[in-house]
């Protein structure tokens, strides 16, 4: 099951980038550029795991839209250029899960989304790439229905690649998320795990080496 996310943002540049991002990492999404239109659409379809709301919106502003989200139990993250504390207080007091201030970067947004999904128990725990299926809850991996034995480190590397599918995961990211930030060891260790994964899961061409940056799991 893919997580499904509602995006309401009137700036086509931001909306496009966020949507593209969702597509890359494997979230389903619906995009609206008008607050009222988004609110009205909820009556027919409200099967969203999360809503990303801009605050200054044509039709109906993000704060007002929040009421509708609450009605259908959809957690909310605001995306806004408003940095004044008054709107932040209002946003969070109203019960929004989080608040992200423009300009933000892709990784920050992804981390916030994951956090909210995990906190609300909606985070997808099953990832698929080709015939490989990974369950992050039970920490099991199957290939073509057959269980595959992975070292714990290999599993963590695979999960990180899956979480940021189609995006480049840098060596620094691997080190800080898996080995811990105070790990001063060699990045050779990462290369070893990647090599193991490629061999055991036959993902030699899916896991791409991006020179000087890191690795990317491609699935499109």
């Amino acid at each position: 099951m893919k997580n499904r996310i509602l995006i309401v943002e009137d700036d086509p540049g931001i909306a496009g980038a966020v949507a593209l991002n969702m597509q890359f990492v494997g979230y389903d999404y619906a995009l609206f550029d008008d607050g009222r239109a988004a609110a009205e659409s909820l009556a027919g379809d409200h099967a969203y795991d999360l809503a990303l709301l801009d605050i200054m919106l044509p039709g109906m502003d993000g704060f007002e839209l929040f009421g509708y989200m609450e009605k259908y139990g959809i957690p909310v993250i605001y995306m806004t250029a408003k940095t004044d504390s008054a709107s932040e207080i209002r946003g969070l007091r109203d019960g929004a899960e989080d608040y992200i201030v423009k300009p933000f970067d892709v990784l920050t947004l992804m981390v916030r989304i994951e956090k909210v999904l995990r906190r609300t128990g909606r985070l997808n725990t099953v990832f698929r790439v080709r015939d490989v299926e990974v369950n992050s809850e039970t920490r099991t991996v199957t290939k073509g229905g057959q269980p595959v034995d992975l070292q714990p480190m290999e599993f963590d590397v695979l999960l990180l690649l899956l979480r940021y599918k189609n995006l480049t995961v840098s060596r620094e990211q691997f080190l800080s998320e898996i080995w811990g930030c105070d790990f001063l060891g060699e990045t050779r260790a990462i290369d070893m795990k990647i090599a193991g994964l490629r061999k055991k899961l036959d993902l030699g061409d899916a896991i791409k080496s991006i020179p000087k940056r890191g690795y990317r799991l491609e699935d499109r």
Binding site: P103, D105, V106, N166, I210, R216
Partner: peptide
């Protein structure tokens, strides 16, 4: 920023 980042790190 978002698009630059995508251009740099996404396939």
């Amino acid at each position: 920023l978002l698009h630059t980042e995508l251009l740099r790190s996404a396939n």
